[in-house]
Nucleic acid binder design. Sequence first.
DNA 1: TGATGCATGTAATCCGTTACATGATTCA
DNA 2: TGAATCATGTAACGGATTACATGCATCA
Lengths: 178, 178
Amino acid sequence: MAMNVRTLCLGILTFREASGYELKKEIEDGSFSHFIDASYGSIYPALTQMNAEGLLTVRSEEQAGRPDKKVYAITDQGRTVLAKSLAVLPAKDKFKSEFLFEMLMQHFISKDHMDEAIDKQHADLLEDLAHIAQKRDRVCEVGSKFVMGYADSVLRAAVNYLEAQCPRLKKPKAKAAE
Amino acid sequence: MAMNVRTLCLGILTFREASGYELKKEIEDGSFSHFIDASYGSIYPALTQMNAEGLLTVRSEEQAGRPDKKVYAITDQGRTVLAKSLAVLPAKDKFKSEFLFEMLMQHFISKDHMDEAIDKQHADLLEDLAHIAQKRDRVCEVGSKFVMGYADSVLRAAVNYLEAQCPRLKKPKAKAAE
DNA sequence: TGATGCATGTAATCCGTTACATGATTCA
DNA sequence: TGAATCATGTAACGGATTACATGCATCA
């Protein structure tokens, strides 16, 4: 399905026009943050290139004190290209976890380090859950709701598993929304 | 934490010595399969390089009809390097999902295609779960058990969410191990 | 005064995949 | 006979990250 920065930007731009900077924020903060990454170093060149190819239009917004903001919008040609990408069935999910690798290496690392790693994982998961809880009732798009619900379920399962396996992690009240 | 093919190979080689071919199998079939990927094109050069650096030793096993099998073993120096990698706390998990991207694009794709994507995701998840169920009681390492349990929880949560959101996916009996 | 946010971009580099190249054995 | 499994490797290419480069505004 060719899920690269190009496709990602085209996708976001079907919701609203945006600058490179805003796209980055959307990717690391919005519904997208749960299953993708992208840095400025890939976003800006992708936008320039797609503009040259006619998939996007640009408009320069002048701003006091700041450099011009380049607002991109998707064209019909861009929509066609995106549609073609989306037409291919999605590849299997890919999950990369240094944490789980460390857990496999239990025979090789100290108990202390393990505990630290587990604490960090636990904290990371809770942070993600908090992030979702905070945004969840503010979104209205069906897609976003679905994705946030999915992420929420999965993260919650991970937290529960961790807490069950490591009683050391105090369950703080639990019970909120089952 | 530098979780690349090198670290991964070193890690596996702390369990047992192995050839590049066997490492690949372990990565795509063993406990590692749930959170990492690697192709021959990255494994073989990594082994050659690490051997040259003194992190591994090689032994050629002659075989009838087949090319020699090169069996690699980790050295003390290799263990030191691995330990240094593992000493850094694991980075946050990274999850890449074309499926969730498609779900976000609901306003842009046909109902039919959505259904196909959901079916595929459902099937992928079930396949992974089956794979775990089949291997689970055969493993004995604590690390493997932990990781399989983690993967199982998360995958099951995803399946449950999907089935709850899309009643079209017939729950087949359910009830097996809650 | 110093961090953070707004705003854009390039170049070097890394890391990995895909496709290619080869070839015997075994099973259906 | 053709697919799958065993077995190793290289070369071309792709895709993205990191670090660099710049600079004003705002807030603490």
